[in-house]
Simulated assay, not measured.
Amino acid sequence: MTQQGTPEHPPRRRLQPPGRASALVPLLLALVLAALVSAVAGGLVRAGALHPAPGWAGDWMGRAAISHGALMICGFMGTVIGMERAVAVKLKLAWLAPLASSMAALCLLQGAVAWAGALFAVAALAFVGVNLVVVWRQRAPHTLVLLLSALAWLVGCTTFLLRPTDPASVPWWFAFLVMTIAAERLEMTRLMRRRPGAQVALALVLVLMAAGAAAGAAYPRAGGVAFGLSLLLLAAWLGVFDIARRTVRSDGLARYMALCLLGGYAWLAVAGAAWAATALGLALRDVALHALGLGFIVSMMMGHAPVILPAIARIKLRFGNWFYGPLAALHLSLAVRLGLGLESPAWRSAGAVLNAASMALFGATMVAAALAWRRHASNATRR
Rank of each mutant, 00 (worst) to 15 (best):
V113N: 08
G82P: 10
M83D: 02
A100S: 13
L106A: 12
L93W: 15
L108P: 00
K90A: 14
A97E: 05
M103A: 15
L108S: 02
A105Q: 09
E84D: 14
L93G: 08
W95E: 02
K92I: 13
W95D: 00
A112Y: 13
L91M: 12
G82L: 05
L93M: 07
V87D: 01
W95S: 03
A100R: 01
Q110H: 11
L91S: 08
V87C: 11
R85E: 03
L109A: 10
G111D: 12
L96H: 02
L96M: 09
W95H: 03
A105D: 01
V113T: 15
A100C: 14
V89D: 02
G82S: 06
A88I: 06
K92D: 09
E84V: 10
L109Y: 07
G111V: 12
P98Y: 03
G111F: 14
A88V: 09
A104W: 11
K90E: 14
Q110I: 02
R85Y: 06
V87R: 07
L108W: 12
L99E: 00
L108A: 06
L93V: 13
K90V: 05
V87M: 13
A88S: 11
S102Q: 08
A97G: 05
A104D: 00
Q110K: 14
L106E: 06
C107D: 12
M83F: 08
A104Q: 06
L99D: 01
A112W: 15
E84G: 14
A112F: 14
E84P: 02
E84I: 09
K90S: 13
K92G: 09
G82Q: 03
S102W: 07
P98S: 09
P98G: 08
P98F: 01
A86Q: 02
Q110D: 11
W95C: 02
L108Q: 09
A86T: 03
P98N: 06
A94K: 06
E84M: 10
L108E: 05
L91C: 04
P98Q: 08
K92P: 01
A97F: 07
K92M: 11
V113R: 15
M103N: 00
A100E: 05
A112M: 13
E84Q: 12
S101W: 06
V89S: 01
G111T: 10
L99I: 09
V87K: 03
A88E: 10
A112T: 04
A105E: 00
S102P: 00
V87A: 10
L109C: 08
M83S: 07
C107N: 06
M103W: 13
A94F: 08
V87P: 01
A104G: 12
P98L: 03
P98M: 08
Q110R: 12
A97K: 05
A104K: 10
A94C: 10
M83W: 05
A105G: 12
E84H: 08
L93D: 07
S102Y: 05
A86N: 01
L106K: 00
A94R: 02
V89H: 00
R85K: 11
L91E: 13
K92R: 14
W95V: 00
A112S: 11
S101R: 04
L91Y: 09
L96D: 01
V87I: 15
L108M: 10
W95N: 00
L99A: 14
P98C: 04
M103H: 00
M83E: 11
